[in-house]
Simulated scan of single mutants.
Amino acid sequence: MRRNVNGYGADDHSLALRAAWLHYVGGLTQAAVARKLKLTSVKTHRLIARAVADGAVKFSIDGDIVECLELEAALAKRYGLSVCEVTPDLAESGLPLRALGLAGASYLARLIDRSAGHMIGLGHGRTLAAVVNELAQRTASNVRFVSLLGGLTRHYAANPHDVMHRIAQRTDAPAHVMPVPFCANSPDDRSVLLSQHGVSEVFAMAQTAPIKLVGIGTVDDDAQLLRAGMIEDADLAEIIDAGAVGELLGHFFDVHGGRIATALDGRTLAVSLAECGDDQLVAIAGGIDKTESIAAVLQSGSLTGLIIDESTAREVLQRGDAR
């Protein structure tokens, strides 16, 4: 079979373009495309996804999307962001995982395409897991991924929202996990863990990754750090009492964006924000319930980029206007 520059058959390339044309321009459902081209539904889905991932499908949308562009400009100006994308609402209830997943996957695909030889650091959580799940299968041997924080719970169980194994499956790229808990029992235990062969190397890779994609956490009873077993009730209670409202990579912030010192500081195994320097630190976060948390992290000046849903973007800006 002839091979094209994208690494798959020239015949499949042509078929992918035809399937994408019928679906996006012709308005046929994927099931209808499969019947018309006499393909299985699975192959039809993969061909269309391949056409999208390769950039063959380009959209031009007029109308309310202009409002998203205006929100992007306002957020970028107010918080000094070099990257800002506001995704249109998809009428999701609760956390807008579909909208954020699609927008985040598109951004990650672009990063992969232009980041030859680079290391991309990834946080974890429900939103980043949705991003990786939406990423089309692709070969990305030109990049490597590394976890930005410990991926195990306090009791050394797997984090249910870890993304490293998923990203390795999606891209066939090396993905370096941080095989330690997010929070050690004591500062001494943290030092012992970091001294282990391999752990210190992964930690150094994470700290020096020039591109870091992260989520933003709340500081309340619904906090993912608590629900995933990364910290305990007593830890969360102390953090709340200290006035924290937002969390980024295990670092906590008050409503004004000030850094909150907690007993976890000497025990957390995560990259240091102070040492990020000129790194790109892009958060993918949204949901009305996270408005206060996102606003706090933005106020801290830690981020260089943000991908957010339309409703939450509007609420963040209104909160800033009210100050």
Score class of each variant (00 low, 15 high):
Tyr156Arg: 13
Lys212Tyr: 00
Pro181Asp: 11
Gly104Ala: 10
Leu152Ile: 02
Leu236Ser: 00
Gln137Ser: 15
Ala283Thr: 12
Val83Ile: 08
Gly26Ala: 11
Leu306Glu: 08
Ala322Cys: 05
Arg170Val: 15
Thr171Leu: 02
Ala103Arg: 13
Pro88Cys: 12
Ile120Asp: 09
Ala204Phe: 06
Arg35Lys: 11
Ala184Val: 03
Leu47Met: 01
Ala261Asp: 14
Gln207Met: 08
Ile288Tyr: 09
Ser115Ala: 15
Gly246Gln: 07
Ala223Met: 04
Leu273Gln: 00
Thr312Trp: 04
Val146Tyr: 03
Ala34Ile: 08
Glu310Asn: 11
Gln30Leu: 15
Leu15Asp: 04
Val52Trp: 14
Glu238Asp: 08
Arg35Glu: 08
Leu17Arg: 14
Ala76Gly: 12
Ile240Val: 15
Leu152Gln: 13
Leu149Val: 06
Thr291His: 02
Ile120Asn: 08
Thr40Asp: 04
Asp12Leu: 08
Val255Ser: 15
Asn185Ser: 08
Glu70Gln: 14
Gly80Ile: 05
Gln137Trp: 11
Ser60Phe: 00
Gln318Phe: 12
Ala295Trp: 01
Val42Lys: 09
Ala244Pro: 03
Ala116Cys: 06
His251Ala: 00
Met205Asn: 02
Thr29Pro: 06
Val180Met: 00
Val297Ala: 02
Leu95Lys: 10
Leu281Trp: 00
Ala223Asn: 14
Ala76Trp: 02
Arg170Thr: 15
Leu75Ile: 07
